[in-house]
Nucleic acid binder design. Structure first.
Lengths: 166, 166
DNA sequence: ATGAAAATATCGACGCCTAAAATATCAAAA
DNA sequence: TTTTGATATTTTAGGCGTCGATATTTTCAT
């Protein structure tokens, strides 16, 4: 059993690398997957519809809430800051895809809604978008995808306990 | 059994929402998890070490490659564009945490390396960083984490086939 | 050797994103 | 009421990120 001959990590120079905790590797892998997919989607949205991912994302939130959403709601759902939502909304308003309506209940707030053109435009893009996602996940079988879905629920719960955010 | 009174989705106005393909939901959940964790790490890095996530990330790549990395290598590993790496590197050079050395093999290229101070600084941050990740994943048991790790490998393979990127 | 094509990095313009401060409104207590 | 504190949004300053263009160097087929 010849052990003992391992480098022995000289006092000063210190061992090399890849002694990462498994959790760290797990996180880095997850991040890599997400970036891979996100970058792909971003570039296809740009190439085929000349739109940015954040704008698409905002429209997507609105499509699910036809009654309109307040800026703060959008901010929460998109997981970005309020100031950021202001900018993205400005752009979409300029393109006629979205409107800011005064909230009847609260004069501080707006209700942001898709315009008819915004709705039309979004539906066309959403079809393609969904196909791209399908394609990206198509190398996993049904069972794997189901498992992954469940594990991510567990991760969300675990992380939320730490971050405080629901 | 009074059914029948459900909205019945009039011809034009069109049904509501949540008729998303399971894969789309899976992707959105994954994205939510990643954003949750990434935002948390970003804000702790800022609060406790006054550094940005991209700078930390770049330093982390260099720490694993003591021989130095070319700008293009950094770009690939960080999954961002070359122009972006130029900017982040400039900042780190300005802070004395990193140096650009001329590549002996190729006069177009640099070898970016951590300075001794950069190395010191990174090690301190990396310890905390790893603890944060551990904590965020701590609500999952060993088996779950292992499963997730495996499934992400499958996803990476699946997505890579589409994106072309290795 | 030469000239075309590919690789390496930077730059400029623009949009996303954050944190912190400013503005305006609301709600509730003094 | 008027103050106080919380909520909703915008603004500002600065860093990150993309794309496309440029300059330099290398590579490789002629």
């Amino acid at each position: 059993m010849s052990k003992k001959s391992v480098p022995a990590a000289s006092d000063t120079e210190t061992r090399a690398t890849s002694e990462h905790a498994p959790d760290l590797r797990l996180w880095l892998r997850m991040l890599a997957c997400t970036n891979l997919i996100e970058n792909h989607v971003r570039s296809r949205l740009r190439a085929e519809f000349d739109i940015t991912l954040p704008r698409f994302d905002l429209m997507s939130q609105l499509e699910r809430s036809p009654q309109g959403l307040k800026m703060g709601e959008l901010s929460k759902r998109m997981m970005v800051t309020g100031g950021n939502v202001t900018g993205i909304t400005d752009q979409l308003v300029g393109e006629g895809l979205v409107v800011r309506e005064d909230s009847p209940k609260d004069r501080r707030a707006y209700l942001v809604k898709l315009t008819p053109e915004g709705r039309r435009s979004f539906r066309k893009m959403a079809d393609s978008h969904e196909k791209w996602i399908l394609e990206l996940f198509s190398g996993m079988d049904e069972g794997q995808r189901g498992q992954l879905y469940g594990l991510l629920a567990a991760l969300k719960t675990s992380a939320s306990r730490v971050t405080g955010k629901k």
